[in-house]
Computed example of a mutant assay.
Amino acid sequence: MTSTQEDPGLQRQVLLVAAGLADLAVSTAGSAVGGLRQLLNRSDGPELVRDAQQELAARGRVAVGRVALAAAPAYLEVMAQQVVERRAVSGGDG
């Protein structure tokens, strides 16, 4: 195995750890917001909590998207490798 074949497994583990940390952060933030809401006793408390959860979820989607894009091979690089392979098979013609 080459190091490039091992990277997807490592990247997946990093993604899972990050997702676990994000879940913990959301849970902690939810508890903190709940306590803060009780302290402030505001009428728009549930809306603030809902907005905070939506914001964290959006940030999580962006973070996961960055990891997913980083893990995907570059399209033009893949195409260039295929051209090199085809030329090697055909003996360098065309």
Rank of each mutant, 00 (worst) to 15 (best):
Met1Glu: 07
Met1Leu: 13
Thr2His: 02
Thr2Tyr: 01
Ser3Gln: 05
Thr4Cys: 00
Thr4Trp: 02
Thr4Arg: 01
Thr4Asn: 01
Gln5Asp: 09
Pro8His: 02
Gly9Gln: 01
Gly9Ala: 08
Gln11Leu: 09
Gln13Thr: 09
Gln13Pro: 01
Val14Pro: 01
Leu15Gln: 03
Leu16Asn: 10
Val17Phe: 01
Val17Ile: 11
Ala18Met: 13
Ala18Pro: 00
Ala18Thr: 04
Gly20Met: 02
Leu21Gln: 06
Ala22Trp: 14
Asp23Glu: 09
Leu24Ala: 15
Val26Ala: 13
Val26Ser: 11
Val26Phe: 08
Val26Trp: 06
Ser27Cys: 08
Val33Gly: 07
Val33Thr: 14
Val33Tyr: 13
Gly34Asn: 09
Gly34Pro: 05
Gly34Met: 00
Gly34Gln: 02
Gly34Cys: 02
Gly35Asp: 09
Leu36Thr: 04
Arg37Ser: 15
Gln38Tyr: 07
Gln38Ser: 14
Leu39Pro: 04
Leu39Ser: 12
Leu40Thr: 09
Asn41Phe: 12
Asn41Cys: 12
Asn41Arg: 15
Arg42Thr: 11
Arg42Trp: 08
Arg42Tyr: 04
Asp44Glu: 10
Gly45Phe: 02
Pro46Ser: 01
Pro46Arg: 01
Glu47Trp: 03
Val49Phe: 09
Asp51Met: 10
Asp51Ala: 15
Ala52Asp: 03
Ala52Tyr: 07
Leu56Thr: 01
Ala58Ile: 08
Arg59Gly: 05
Arg59Glu: 05
Gly60Ser: 13
Val62Phe: 11
Ala63Asp: 06
Ala63Pro: 09
Ala63Gln: 04
Gly65Gln: 04
Arg66Ser: 06
Val67Lys: 00
Ala68Met: 11
Ala70Asp: 11
Ala71Ile: 00
Ala71Asn: 02
Ala72Thr: 03
Pro73Lys: 00
Pro73Asn: 01
Pro73His: 00
Ala74Cys: 11
Ala74Trp: 10
Tyr75Cys: 08
Tyr75Phe: 14
Glu77His: 06
Glu77Met: 06
Val78Gly: 04
Val78Ile: 08
Ala80Val: 04
Ala80Met: 08
Gln82Tyr: 05
Val83Pro: 07
Val83Asn: 03
Glu85Tyr: 03
Glu85Ser: 12
Glu85Asp: 14
Arg86Thr: 06
Arg87Gly: 04
Arg87His: 07
Arg87Asn: 05
Arg87Leu: 15
Ala88Lys: 13
Ser90Asp: 13
Gly92Leu: 05
Gly92Val: 02
Asp93Met: 06
Gly94Val: 13
